[in-house]
């Protein structure tokens, strides 16, 4: 690794060991953990807030992790392979992750999305070669779930593997096996609170279980839109939604309720005050994390930046 070439002695602070990988799947995870600075200037220095930059996964979102686990577990069980098509309902990021991994592994992917999904989403998944099936935009993500279930029920040829991210235990397992140990290690085993909003709930359930195994005292806090009619990308207001089967609220130490406007405003502030351009669900995560942090005299609070803002620009 070491070199005596003079070029290696310059600007050490800007240099990282370059990585190389044999497989695309190996690029998923091991995302950086970054400390918030300016947004937390009113907190005591003993209270740290860190964000895990899941936007730096190769598919651009946290959903690369569950998608990879779902593919791997399905191949292991024989649910995929032999020309089977992966199908699922998704409001966006999971679809991008499935499409990317499907392309790399040679698996056909069909996605059920509400028709009002942004044009960029359509373009990205189609570039990866996935097929989109549209559901009624008035019914939101639940409408997409219902249509996916119907297509699977009517699949007499048995061509589909229904990935079912809302019910598939591989989804939380991905976070238990990867996200949790990464956070434990990246915080030097000091994490006290993990906060994440819930869509499928895979992130909070799996990371929560994983972290509790390291230290059962770690507080696991979920966050949800405060209203059934909301604009927080990919999140679910559980009291009015089809509740994902993988969601076990009794395992959480608390739930925070976030207004759409708070999430959107925080996403803007993360970009302009921290240099972290992210989607509004990440904004909601940071609102909840700062709420939790504001009640502490000391602690290490970790949350997730689910995806990058550029995914939402230019409608």
């Amino acid at each position: 690794m070491s070199s005596t070439h003079p070029a290696w002695t310059e600007r050490l602070e800007a240099r990282h060991p370059p990585q190389r990988h044999e497989k695309l799947l190996d690029l998923i995870g091991e995302t950086p953990l970054l400390r918030l600075r300016r947004l937390v200037s009113d907190l005591p220095p003993e209270v740290e807030v860190w964000v895990k930059l899941e936007s730096m996964n190769p598919g651009g979102s946290v959903k690369d992790r569950p998608a990879r686990q779902i593919f791997l577990d399905a191949f292991e069980k024989g649910d995929l392979g032999d020309g089977k098509i992966l199908i699922d309902a998704t409001s966006g990021n999971t679809g991008i992750a499935y499409s990317m991994i499907g392309a790399a592994m040679g698996v056909e992917v069909h996605l059920v999305m509400p028709k009002n999904v942004s044009p960029q989403r359509k373009d990205i998944v189609e570039a990866y070669g996935a097929k989109i099936i549209y559901s009624d935009p008035m019914e939101g993500s639940d409408g997409a779930i219902r249509l996916a279930r119907q297509l699977v029920d009517e699949d007499e040829k048995g061509q589909y593997f229904y990935a079912d991210q809302y019910r598939n235990p591989s989804n939380p397992l991905a976070h238990q096996l990867t996200t949790a140990p990464e956070i434990w290690s990246q915080t030097n085993e000091r994490v006290t609170h993990f906060v994440a909003s819930t869509g499928t709930s895979g992130t909070i359930m799996g990371t929560g279980r994983g972290l509790k195994k390291f230290n059962s005292e770690i507080q696991i806090i979920g966050a949800q839109p405060s209203d059934a009619f909301h604009g927080l990308e990919g999140l679910k207001h559980m009291p009015s939604s089809i509740v994902p089967e993988i969601y076990e609220e009794e395992e959480l130490d608390g739930v925070r309720w976030i207004d759409t406007d708070e999430g959107w405003d925080m996403a803007d502030r993360l970009a302009s005050e921290e240099g972290i351009a992210c989607g509004n669900s990440a904004g909601a995560n940071v609102v909840a994390a700062l709420e939790v942090a504001g009640e502490l005299s000391q602690g290490v609070v970790v949350t997730v930046i689910c995806d990058h803002a550029d995914r939402y620009f230019g409608e």
């Binding site: 966006g92 999904v117 942004s118 935009p137 409608e315």
Partner: peptide
């Protein structure tokens, strides 16, 4: 006329 939440993307 349809009232649609931007729940599935579409931020301008």
């Amino acid at each position: 006329v349809s009232i649609v939440p931007a729940i599935a993307g579409g931020r301008s």
